[in-house]
C-alpha cells in the first residue's frame, strides 16, 4: 500500500517517565489519516500510556514527564502555547470502561457541544440524533433520550461514550481497549461501528486482543516493555513479522 495519505500524528523520539520509571522509550511513529491503527502488546507494555499521550490525558497523573515531540497536524502538542483543551477537542477518546456521566443520555451527548459554547436547542437536538446514529445507537434509545445513561447495558453505555465523543466532531478518535469490559455481542457491534467510523475519522485503538487488531485495523504497532518493536500494515505484521519478538508474541509464545 502506498502511503499517499497525510499524517495525523507524527511521533518523534518520544520518551515518557512516571516519576523515575521510564514507561516509553524513543517511540517514532507516523499515524495516517482515515486509518484504523491498532496498538497491541502484553499488559504493562506501555500501549495504554502511549495512546493517552496522544491527547495528553496521561498528564492527569502529576508525576509524568516527557521528552521528544508529538506533532498533530504539523504542530507539536507539547509546545508551551499548545492548548490541551483544544487538542482534546480535536482528538477524542473512548475509555476502557464505559464512563457515561450520571446524567440522561441526551445530557451526556450535549455535554461536549455545550461546553464548547453551542446553546441552540435545535442544533443540539440535531447533534444528538446525528451522534447517536453515528454510534449505531439511535434506534435503541431514541424513545428514552432523557433517561439516565446508567440504565443502559454495558455495550450501550460504551456506544453512548462513543456518541459523546462524536458529538464534538473530532478529527481523531483514540480508543483504549474499548471492548475489554464488554460481552462478545456488544464487542461485535462496537467493531462493526469502528469499520463505519473510519470513513470519517482516523482511529487509534489499543487492544489486548490480537484477533480484534487483525479484524479491524489497517496498520498495527507492536509494543513491548515501552518500546515500539514493529509498526507496519496489519496483514504484513500478522503474516510475515520482521522481528523475532513480534513473531513470538503473535504466535502466542508469551503475553
Amino acid at each position: 500500500m502506498a502511503d499517499t495519505k497525510s499524517s495525523v500524528f507524527n511521533v518523534k523520539d518520544l520518551n515518557l517517565w512516571y516519576g523515575d520509571n521510564q514507561a516509553l522509550y524513543d517511540i517514532n511513529m507516523d499515524i495516517k489519516e482515515n486509518d484504523v491503527t491498532a496498538i497491541i502488546g502484553p499488559s504493562g507494555c506501555g500501549k495504554s500510556t502511549y495512546v493517552k499521550t496522544l491527547n495528553r490525558m496521561v498528564e492527569t497523573v502529576p508525576v509524568v514527564k516527557t521528552s521528544g515531540e508529538i506533532e498533530y497536524r504539523g504542530k507539536n502538542i507539547f509546545d508551551k502555547n499548545y492548548l490541551v483543551e483544544d487538542l482534546r477537542t480535536k482528538v477524542g477518546m473512548v475509555f476502557q470502561k464505559p464512563n457515561p456521566f450520571p446524567k440522561s443520555i441526551y445530557e451526556n451527548i450535549v455535554y461536549g457541544p455545550k461546553i464548547h459554547g453551542i446553546k441552540d436547542k435545535k442544533t443540539l437536538d440535531q447533534i444528538v440524533e446525528k451522534s447517536l446514529k453515528g454510534a449505531a445507537l439511535w434506534d435503541e434509545v431514541k424513545d428514552r433520550l432523557h433517561e439516565n445513561a446508567y440504565g443502559l447495558s454495558g455495550g450501550q453505555q460504551q456506544r453512548v461514550c462513543i456518541a459523546r465523543c462524536l458529538a464534538i466532531e473530532p478529527d481523531v478518535i483514540l480508543m483504549d481497549e474499548p471492548t475489554s469490559a464488554l460481552d462478545p455481542i456488544s464487542t461485535l457491534k462496537v467493531e462493526e461501528l469502528i469499520q463505519e467510523l473510519k470513513k470519517d475519522y482516523s482511529i487509534v485503538i489499543v487492544t489486548h486482543n490480537m484477533q480484534q487488531a487483525a479484524r479491524i485495523s489497517d496498520k498495527t504497532a507492536f509494543f513491548l516493555s515501552g518500546e515500539l518493536v514493529e509498526y507496519t500494515d496489519t496483514n504484513t505484521l500478522f503474516s510475515t513479522p520482521s522481528d523475532k519478538r513480534t513473531e513470538d508474541y503473535i504466535t502466542g509464545r508469551f503475553g
Binding site: 487538542l87 482534546r88 464512563n99 455535554y111 461546553i115
Partner: peptide
C-alpha cells in the same frame, strides 16, 4: 473516569468540576 471523560472532550478543569463532579 468521569473527570477523564469530560477532559477528553476538551473540557477545562472548571467545566469538569462544575458540570460533572459537582452534580
Amino acid at each position: 473516569v468521569l473527570r477523564e471523560g469530560a477532559m477528553a472532550l476538551g473540557a477545562t478543569r472548571l467545566e469538569t468540576t462544575i458540570k460533572v463532579v459537582i452534580p
